[in-house]
Nucleic acid binder design. Structure first.
Lengths: 345, 345
DNA sequence: CTGAAAGCGCTTACAG
DNA sequence: CTGAAAGCGCTTACAG
């Protein structure tokens, strides 16, 4: 059982528990032979540190919280969109490398998430996605580093990992324009002020304007960011539209669009070209495979962890709790596959 | 800050910390007015229980560990296969309903996972997938409930959540036979003794035997359980095989097969019918959509949590630490979509 | 270079 | 029905 304690190690070595603790944590610089004696005893006894105890006294738990949005209240977490699982796996991996464990959590609409931070003495929190302003109330903002991924909130003291979404929308649209498309649809989730969807729309608009192309109102479509919602809007609207291409701001939507166009007998890309955004695994799974704006999700998760870690290390070293509120903007690139073709205007 | 303690609540109410603790945990049955006084003070003060402290003294953390296999060592977690993210989301959700938090973790090949159980005082562990025998060494088996999901290890005292895989293989194959197929290929991961793949193979074999159909050696194919591996084996082997249908023991493989057949100009299902297993979301994403043996992943995650919870509740009530080592076998059903067609033999 | 001791915030026999 | 007190396993000034 895990009931070998620091006390047993002290007895075994003939040292005090204080010294054992110092040795374990590399605090005072003890003579190497003392440290070694302790390490040997630890191995011999199978000692394992009790984080509950150390967390209680030192106020650091080596635990980070990861929050993932819950679309349908009352249902499971939003793992319909593989984006979340992909970034979560990257976060877990990099946290582990740094010696942290990860508590994943959806959000109870009724309960304040950040209670968890106090209950568990979390060292930091990574928030993925967009939340309402009052989600962040009750967050001990000066006391715990928070990294926001893909959030459009501009909170002081919070670090951010994001994309240049305007640029992404611009890239995608330019790519379509270069391939001869002029009548280009746009499909996204709700375009909220400062949000990802609106930013990508702005990029789309910018590219269209620069190319001197008009955007027809009906080309701009909105639905939930999901596979089924995208199928539905494709069936109801997109099929009847006079467009040669559509830019979807999420791969999960683009895959839905392709799936439905296939069903309707509308050929992709011959009749309609489809462009996505994310470069998820599923972009390879559909036929035709999806040309998309690629973001590096693995890197995104890594950066989130690294930003957190930097704070934590600084805190420890200099005793600062002041957060820099840094920002990290990751690059984007076009990933060419089969869902877009060249046409002659 | 979260530094309102039980002591503050005691001061506020004029009660002792013991009584406050009793009130919070509903231990002795205190008079309702005492309990209410405490609850009011808690609300007023914004008291939040410190789990590090309670875990330290009571040896229960309200924390459960979830282990997910890591295919490529050194890379991220196996979220390539959406199965893992889907079940994880179900587990997190149901754990949360029960008041537990979830620590997700891949496995460092070098390190013993179960250290985590001691370090964090985990109340229980859910292990998803198959692991080598010595993964389980160092697990405090009598002291902490463990639920194995889709494991083929027969460990005493571990609960199991699984499928009737033989039955699943039988169902899939029978479905194909009923649709007139006789030359039916089989694609799975490595068929280890007692493992999921071998069991599904046995179901396949049984159905073929009962129908009086011979299985040709080359029809039985093996590759990694992944999209790319399935594509590759399709290109190299399956294309040249004299079969009219193939049963893949995982949707992620079936989707790879369909994708590659599409690329090769082999029509699905007209030239080759494809059958999957799992009923993941991606079964809808491909064209044609995938006919598959459906398991209820949401329910699987739920059962895993419930089995754990049952143990935990029993422990608390009767002080038993003896595990029942129960078993839960979930039902399977054919989900018809478009990737299988009827042929005339 | 090392140790005795206080204390982190809880829970839980035990006593009254 | 309620409380004083010990103790869970650590860390960390402080003293020597």
């Amino acid at each position: 059982m895990g009931n070998v304690t620091i006390k047993d190690v002290a007895n075994e070595t003939g040292l005090s528990i204080a010294t054992v603790s110092y040795a374990i944590n590399g605090k005072k610089n003890l003579p190497p032979e003392t440290v070694q004696k302790v390490q040997e005893a630890i191995k011999r006894l199978g000692y394992i540190k009790n984080y509950s105890a150390s967390s209680l006294v030192s106020n650091t738990s080596h635990l980070i919280g990861v929050v993932i949005p819950q679309t349908e209240p009352g249902s499971a977490m939003v793992f319909e969109n593989p984006f979340y699982s992909q970034i979560l796996s990257s976060i877990e991996y990099h946290a582990r490398l740094r010696g942290y464990h990860v508590i994943v959590s959806g959000t109870n609409a009724d309960e304040k998430y950040f209670n968890l931070a106090s209950q568990r003495n979390l060292d930091g929190v990574i928030v993925i996605g967009a939340y309402s302003e009052d989600f962040f109330n009750g967050l001990p903002s000066e006391s715990i580093p928070v990294v926001l991924v893909d959030s459009y909130l501009q909170k002081d003291g919070y670090s951010q990992v994001k994309l240049d979404d305007v640029q992404g929308g611009y890239l995608a649209t330019s790519y379509l324009l270069e391939h001869g498309h002029e009548k280009i649809g746009f499909l996204s989730g709700r375009r909220k002020e400062g949000g990802v969807s609106l930013n990508r729309y702005n990029g789309y608009e910018k590219a269209m304007n620069e190319a001197g192309k008009k955007i027809v109102n009906e080309w701009v479509m909105t639905c939930n960011v999901g596979f089924e919602a995208a199928r539905k809007i494709t069936r109801k609207i997109m099929g009847g539209l006079d467009i040669t291409a559509v830019f979807c701001t999420a791969d999960i939507m683009a895959v839905g669009v392709i799936r439905e166009l296939n069903s309707m007998g509308i050929r992709v890309p011959e009749d309609i070209s489809v462009m996505g955004f994310d470069n998820l695994n599923i972009a390879n799974y559909c036929t035709p495979s999806l040309t998309t704006v690629g973001q590096d999700i693995f890197e995104k998760g890594k950066q989130a962890v690294e930003m957190l870690y930097k704070h934590l290390a600084e805190e420890e070293e200099k005793g600062i709790r002041k957060l820099s509120g840094g920002e990290c903007i990751l690059p984007l690139e076009i990933i060419e596959r089969e869902s877009v073709c060249r046409i002659n205007a």
